[in-house]
Design a protein around this nucleic acid. Structure first.
Length: 568
RNA sequence: CGGGACGUGGCGCAGCUUGGUAGCGCGCAUCGUUCGGGACGAUGAGGUCGCCGGUUCAAAUCCGGCCGUCCCGACCA
């Protein structure tokens, strides 16, 4: 492509509405333009990168036996009703009424639809299967942000596996795990695989692939000593045991005027350290009030609560609901002797005694609480959010917590969809068995952006070879110089003949503008051709990533470019 | 959904407090001089000031409503 004929609208200034680096650079580099909140147009450069990201993914998924499909974006609402996800995903599902009055869902993902095709599977002999497609998804995110990182319309590669049993699923899951690692490596990103919550996917296990980044929306807890890593939504840690006094103390009420918080009670005369307090929260789980108990200094991890209870709708209770249930306001709540409501307690409270908590009467607390003796706990579960600096549950090392971008997510779905949509095959004995499914997603545009977040410098983007929009840019310093034009045209045509994707910067611009643009858009290799070098019979090769420059004899230019592209 | 900010040529912004019919930088066009790191000079094109309504002799500016965009939070496979 000749730059003089290309549409590459680069910008000198950062766009006013961009915050994330990838957002700024992709807009400034002429890759994307916003149409509305969370919806972007791919310009030619952007589309070239997008295509290459998809190519990398297709290669790696095909390599583990994937078969490419293309399923529709328009779905009948009825299918989504069958799995109940029209409810559980209601806040992000986009839908409309067609001319016949039927509700049409714009697909936010494709488990239901692949499963529907999968109903044609009838025999165990047909399994396993690995199906995938690359298709547009629509999700009405409450708050799109950071350019391509969080949008409402995007492309996703999603694959689905079908197996006769969980053993088969494990194999396909592991293959995806390895394929995904290869994909992210080729996209130029260091990923950490973390255990995650399966959320609304209805699955049994899932792994997220995370790239450390300040603009990431997820938080990862990772051990600095071993390879334990988990989304904070599921992360565990080991705490130093607390030894409570052995003697049996009785419960004792005491007045605590104006004490409303854990901190208040800590500093209150006759109060208690946060570690000696019980924090009592009231939640509404699928319409039912429930008490949540944690140690005073611990924070509730809502995702853990949701996962452990299997509830779909979850929210903190309103003040009037709390008063109706316990007869006091938040700040004076406790679970001692409370009945007729489910009590979920964090495991760290188990066996604790001499604890202090609210008395369910404003301005009154009780001390001397023996958790197991005095509270009718229904369920002991892990509910707390881990903190940086705590001990790794695997090796005892230190945990750190950092923000990260979720670039991929793989799920063991199990038989959820088989049960809901009737997927089964006959086994060797002629007996119907449910098909065990897995699903595996990678967001294309998010990965483009995440790659930029991971691969840039002050001058602009530094694309990894596999997804750069062009392999090499030939910068013609003086397009009005006859020799320069001659040599650059020759090299341009020779490289094209060899299958190299080359951008020839033949614009009538000053050299500084051309250099700056080449660096902004991030082409891995630049060949600079100008009278100064040609006088000495050389052209200059500049590697974008390192900035390393080499002078090469004119006649060796093409072979050196080929070598660079083949080698590094 | 709660809180905050913003909306003025293609891009980035000023003007609004103290109403008088729009300006700067970049970019763009033409010409000339330049030319290995974002040149200079000259001339020029380009704007329903987000939309609707109100106040006023007069509204980018004041008032009301709406829409849109961004940021923080909530939410989020």
């Amino acid at each position: 492509m000749r730059w003089s004929e290309a549409f590459i609208p680069t910008l000198r200034d950062d766009p006013a509405d961009a915050e994330a680096i990838s957002h700024k650079l992709l807009v400034r580099g002429g890759y994307i333009r916003q149409l509305m909140s969370g919806v972007y147009s791919m310009l030619p450069l952007g589309q070239r990168v997008r295509t290459k990201v998809m190519k990398v993914i297709v290669e790696e998924i095909d390599a583990i036996g994937g078969q490419e499909f293309l399923l529709p974006q328009l779905h009948p609402a009825a299918i989504w009703e069958k799995t109940g996800r029209i409810e559980s995903m209601a806040d992000i599902i986009m839908s409309f009424e067609d001319n016949k009055g039927g509700t049409v869902v714009l697909g936010p993902t494709h488990e239901e639809i692949f499963a529907t095709v999968g109903t044609e599977l009838t025999s165990y002999k047909q399994l396993p299967q690995l199906w995938y497609h690359i298709q547009t998804k629509f999700r009405d995110e409450a708050r799109p942000k950071s350019g391509l990182l969080r949008v409402r319309e995007f492309t996703m590669k999603d694959s689905y596996t079908f197996d006769v049993d969980f053993n088969g699923l494990d194999i396909q899951f592991d293959r995806h795990f390895e394929a995904y690692k290869r994909i992210f490596d080729r996209l130029g990103m260091d990923v950490v695989a973390v255990h995650a919550s399966s959320g609304a996917m209805g699955g049994t296990a899932s792994i997220e692939f995370m790239v450390r980044s300040d603009v990431g929306e997820d938080e990862v807890a990772a051990c600095t000593a071993c390879d334990y890593a988990a989304n904070v939504e599921t992360a565990r840690s080991t705490l130093a045991p607390i030894v409570d006094p052995e003697d049996d103390v009785a419960i004792e009420r005491f007045d605590t005027p104006d004490v409303r918080t854990i901190a208040d009670l800590e500093s209150f005369e006759g109060g208690a350290a946060a570690t000696q307090q019980i924090k009592t929260l009231v939640y509404v789980l699928d319409g039912e009030l429930a008490l949540i108990l944690l140690r005073g200094d611990h924070a509730l991890q809502e995702q853990k609560l949701q996962d452990a209870t299997g509830s779909i709708e979850m929210r903190p209770a309103q003040p009037d609901e709390i008063r109706g249930l316990l007869g006091a306001d938040a700040g004076s709540l406790g679970a001692v002797k409370v009945e007729n409501v489910t009590i979920h307690a964090d495991s760290e409270l188990r066996g604790r005694r001499s604890m202090t908590t609210g008395a369910n009467e404003n301005d009154v607390h009780v001390r001397g609480v023996d958790v197991e003796r005095d509270i009718a706990v229904d369920e002991w579960i892990d509910l707390r959010t881990v903190e940086a600096g705590e001990e790794c549950p695997e090796c005892g090392g230190l945990l750190e917590i950092f923000p990260a971008i979720e670039v991929g997510h793989i799920f063991k779905l199990g038989t959820f969809y088989a049960d809901k949509l009737g997927l089964s095959v006959l086994d060797e004995n002629g007996k119907a068995i449910p098909i065990v499914m897995g699903s595996y997603g990678i967001g294309i545009e998010r990965n483009m952006a995440a790659s930029v977040e991971a691969n840039h410098d002050d001058a602009g983007i530094v694309w990894p070879r596999d997804i750069a929009p062009y392999d090499v840019v030939i910068t013609v310093v003086r397009p009005d110089d006859e020799r320069s034009t001659e040599v650059s045209t020759m090299l341009y045509e020779s490289l094209i003949a060899d299958g190299v994707e080359v951008l020839l910067d033949d614009r009538k611009e000053r050299p500084g503008v051309k250099f700056a643009d080449a660096e902004l858009i991030g082409i891995p290799l630049r060949v600079t051709i100008g009278p100064r070098g040609l006088d000495n019979g050389v052209v200059e090769l500049v590697e974008r990533k390192s900035g390393d420059k080499r002078e090469i004899a004119i006649e060796d230019a093409a072979s050196n470019v080929m070598e660079f592209l083949g080698a590094t």
